[in-house]
Each structure stands twice: as C-alpha cells, then as structure tokens.
Design a protein around this nucleic acid. Structure first.
Lengths: 347, 347
DNA sequence: GTGAAAGCGCTAACAC
DNA sequence: GTGTTAGCGCTTTCAC
C-alpha cells in the first residue's frame, strides 16, 4: 500500500447534518428524520430543514449512514469480465434497477478462477459494507467467486443454468439450445456439430441442450469443438469445419464465435447457409447485420440483470419467497441456417 | 423510497477490530496500526494481531474507515452508457488499475443530458464518500455530467478531445481522423463523405479531423450524414450512399456504424471497397472479422481507462503536475478501402 | 511502541 | 413531535 499526502481542501469542510440542523434551528435527529422519513416531523420544521438542505446543498454521507444504520445502499457485482457484450448488458440492467431503487452499484472483476485471485476479489468486495452481492455466474471465475463467497450478506446469481446454491435469475439456455438444435434437425440436417465457448462448469447449458436434442432425436452426437471467448478463435474452427465433409450444421456457443466460424468457412470458399448452416447464441447487436444475418437465440441480458436485482431486493427485505426467476429465450430465425446441401453430409 | 424490514442475522455479528484487539490482547489502535501501517508496531504484537485477524477472518469495514480517516478508497465512474464497446472497455481499464491500487469502483449511468437526470445521477454519486470521480466524456450525457459536477473531490475525464476544464486522459481522435481521411485521399478519392455518430459537443474530434484534412487538401467538404449509436441506423445511410453516384469513400464515426453502412451498400448491389470505400473508427473486436475486414483506427479504450486512473491517483495525492495524458491512436489498414471506382465519382 | 480518549457523520433508543 | 444520549467501526490525536 502506498502512502500519499492528501490535500485537505474541499473534502475537509463537508457540509454535515449538524450544519443543516444549526441553520434550520432544529436538532440533528430531526434533520435525520426528514432525510429518512423514519418519523413524523411537523410541517414548519420540515420546511425549515428542507430550505436549509437546499441552501447548503447538503448531501448526506452514505458511508456514515451505512455505518450508523447498518443498512448500506450499495450492491456489488462480481464478474469474470465486464466488457463482453452479455456481461456489459447484465451490468447495465442491474445498475438501472438499482439506481431506480436508490442503490449504488460497485463492480469487482475476478480475473481468473485462481484461488488467490478469487479470494482477493472477494475480500475487496466484502470490505465494502454492502446490501448484497450479485455474482455473474457465466464463466469459471464467476463460478469460483460464487463458490468461495461467504454468505455474510444476501447473494444473488445471474446465470444460464439453474443451481440451488443461492437465489438466482436465469436465462434457460438449456431449453433454448435444445430448441435451436431441433430447428436445425427439422431443416433436414442429419446431426448438428457444436462449437463450445469456455464452460462455466463441467458442462454449460448450451452444450447440455444440444446433446439432449440430438439424443432425443436418436442422432449421432459429434465430438465437441472448442473455441475461446475471442471471436478469432472461431476462424480456425471454421476452417476445420469447411475441410471436413460430414459437417452440414453448426451450433456455436455464442454469436461472436459464430461470426468467426462463418468467416473461416467462407474464407475456405464455401457458403453459409448454402453449404453449411451456422447458428449462434445471444442475439448480439451485430447479429442481424452480419452476412448472412445470424439465426440465433435472443438472450435479454439487461432484463436478466433487472430480474436479478428484483430478487436481491426481496432478499434484502427478508422475503424468503421468490428465490428464482427463469426465462426461456426465443429462437430468432434469420438467414444463416437452411436445409442441408446435397453435396455434403456424406461422412 | 420504500421501507422494508431487515433481517438482522449475519450482518449483526460482524467481526470488528475490537474483537481482533481482544483476541490478540492489544489495544484497538494497535490493530489499526498494523492494518494501515501508519505507525510501527513491535514484531511480537504485530504477529499476534495478524494471527487474530486470520483466525477471525476479520475484514475492516471500508465505510467506517472512510468515515474516520476521510480518505475513501472508492472511485466513481459516471458514464452515459456502460454496455457499448468503448465504454465497457474503458470501465474495465479503470477497474483493473483501481483494483491493483486497492481502490473499488462504483458506477453510475446518466441516461440522458436532461438536467434533472444529470442532477440525480450526480447526487447519487456524490453521496458516496469518494476518493474521486472519473467521467466518461464521450457523449452528451457525459459532457453534461462533467459540466454540472461540483469539484468537491478530484475529477478526471476520459475523452476523445482535450478541453481544459479538468485533468483528462484522451485518445486524440482529431489527429487520427485526419490521418484516416488523408489515407483515403491518398488512395485517389476526390473527397470523403462522413457519417457522424451523436456528437459529444458542438462537434466531435472525428468530424473536426475529417474536415481539417479535406480543407488542408483543398477538397470539397460534403454534407455530413447522421447516424445514431444503433448500428442499424447505418444501413439506411448506406442505402442512401449507394443511391448517390458521387460518393466513393465514406468515413464512419465508429466501426458498428461502418458495418451498418456496408450492409446498406451491399444490399443495394454494390461492393465494398470496389465501388465504395468505407472506413470505421475504434477497431471493434469484430472489425477484422467483417467482410470486408474493416480499415479503421485502433482506439485502446482499456488503456485510456488505465491512464485516466493514473491521473486520478496523482490528483488524489495532490501532485499538481501531470494534468493531461494524450495518445494518438494508429490507423489500421485492412480491406474495406481501396482506390476509387472509375464508374463512380461523377457528381 | 503503546494505550486512553476523542471524534468522523450519521441513525437508533429513549425520554419527554 | 422533538431533543438528549449513545453508539456504528474505525483512525487520530496525545499522553506515556
């Protein structure tokens, strides 16, 4: 920890509740009462206080308030990443509802699922006097953070697959993946290949749904192809797919990977969807603009964030009722999938 | 404001510094000394304290600490948006450096530049006992927030164009836009059209740089075309461009708009860059994957965030030296721009 | 080096 | 309704 000299200029003469009380000629608790609405204050005094507050541009100190009331108005978000589309949207959703309810949002990134890294992030977060913590359980760091998190304050997870450890808002990706895979089978494909993004657990919902659809239909379950979160990793995978004549349909773990895969396929001289169908997952803002426009699943991450915050509010209030909010995202049919080519599919 | 009953379970029996002091058999200030390193503590006592801290899993309360020391360890970010690529990256950069320096990051979104909205966001932020505030001055809400912000704590802006109001980290988009426009002129285009994203001020740096390059070269300065932040707005603009025979080169305010514009042009049956050259700005993660791969400017937003946090640290320390950090982003040449078509350009 | 005492800005508990 | 008295969990004097 570095030590630094601090200028004590503006911060030093903060306007306090005592200044307001003095100007309004009332006691400090009376000011507090009009601030919190915790008890009735006579109209004359209330108006005097309000005038004083306005005149002094007084803003109560959240730190002091949290300390004294033991009811902090801060929600922390823990996430493995913040700049990826789905993460950023989920954070935006949480922030939006939180702000509307008078809460502030704090963010901590967990860079990896390394124990020490996770522990440090948790420590930094928990030192913060929080009303609650929302964990983005989308990837290994998020899962690790949730697992190591002490339950000192309410915890809510945002996730693609339900588990029972804590209250959570989920987008049911398993069901959606199943539906999307069935859509491809219905188009006439003998089977569907799967390009997976880094799993948040032993197996993520998209992979599970895909496998279930194939099993239910009695189809071959091809070997899973792996990509990273980087869309460019999809290009190499796409090139490999183009080279193997038995692939006619590909379900990618997210839209960005699908874009990379399509790029790899078209660079190899094949067409999507004429030669190979490719579908994604997420409905990324650029999915409709891609060539061809991507058939995908519309995951509303911002709403996921809002639903998560609602659960959090219930937790904070101690209403042990709703512990779970699930939503099944719709398949969005565009042009990147079609009936299989007659010249491919012969393994 | 809603009032809710609070369960007083876990939060009630927080481990405090007093518990640590008791277990280690030292006074409370001594524990504080080992925590902050503010004064020397004998080795025996220090080790006893450290053992007690570990045993009790003690975590100091940031709220209490901020209150007592008047040196909060929280940085607030105010932004007009958080989920857009550049914003999300900048936030990630700030968070990364902040976390490394023992600071926590708080986020407030300003939904619009409406006075009341801005005022509310500022009030919510300032109530938070902060070490400083970083404003993302990329759009009208950000600019408005910066303008209305009282200077009670250190303020740093992240921006594309320098102004002198507060210390700021900037990516010099004016120079980059000029360079990119010159690149198109050098390719042989008579002039360059410009599709603008919503301006952060009377005129943003990209537009200024574009105009300056055209003026310097003595070329026509065409009417500016406007797009929103939504990539789809670019499609209509692209269609219009395809229909007007005098356009041979287009400089778009960002990559996503460029993708929309390209889509509009190709939907009209023309090719990029054969018929019309289109360049973007940002180097979005998908820019290289687009067809054709986008020629653009590589803005490193995450580093912008890190540079901004460095300035903030200097401000907090009261070192009135570096008030400004600028970086000129490089042009990235890919395949979306080429020499002009001979069949177009005749106005 | 170390402890006792005071206080950061606010809310809670209790009288009146 | 309103003021007085106590703290929230920590850091900061200031003695020793």
């Amino acid at each position: 920890m570095t030590h630094i000299e601090v200028r004590n200029d503006a911060a030093a003469n903060r306007v306090t509740i005592a200044d307001v009380a003095a100007l309004a000629d009332v006691s400090v608790p009376t000011v507090s009462r009009v601030l919190t609405g915790a008890a009735k204050v006579s109209r004359v005094r209330r108006e005097r206080v309000e005038r004083a507050i306005a005149e002094l541009s007084f803003r109560p100190s959240a730190a002091a308030r949290a300390l004294a009331s033991r009811r902090p108005q801060v929600i922390a978000i823990i996430a493995g990443d913040t700049s990826q589309y789905g993460y950023a949207e989920a954070i935006r959703g949480v922030e939006e509802s939180a702000r509307a309810s008078g809460y502030t949002v704090m963010i901590t990134v967990v860079e990896s699922n390394d124990d020490a890294v996770v522990e440090k992030a948790i420590a930094a977060t928990l030192s913060q006097s929080l009303a609650g913590i929302i964990v983005l359980k989308f990837d290994p760091p998020g899962v690790a953070a949730l697992a190591q998190m002490p339950h000192e304050v309410p915890i809510v997870a945002l996730s693609g697959v339900r588990d029972t450890s804590v209250p959570q808002a989920v987008i049911d990706e398993t069901r959606a993946a199943e539906e999307l895979t069935n859509y491809l089978l219905d188009l006439g494909h003998a089977t569907v290949h799967h390009v997976r993004v880094p799993a948040s657990r032993r197996e993520d919902g998209r992979t599970t749904g895909w496998r279930r659809a194939l099993r239910t239909a009695g189809r071959d379950v091809p070997v899973i192809l792996d990509a990273t979160w980087d869309p460019h990793s999809g290009v190499a995978v796409g090139a490999g797919i183009a080279a193997s004549r038995d692939v006619t349909a590909v379900f990618c773990g997210n839209d960005e990977i699908a874009m990379g895969v399509i790029r790899g396929i078209t660079d190899a001289g094949l067409s999507v969807p004429e030669d190979i169908s490719v579908v994604g997952f997420d409905d990324h803002p650029l999915a409709a603009l891609w060539s061809p426009p991507l058939t995908t699943v519309d995951q509303d991450f911002a709403r996921l964030g809002r639903r998560g915050f609602s659960l959090m509010l219930a937790e904070i209030a101690g209403e042990a009722t709703r512990k779970y909010s699930s939503e099944r995202p719709p398949v969005v049919v565009r042009q990147s999938a079609a009936a299989p080519s007659r010249t491919r599919g012969g393994a």
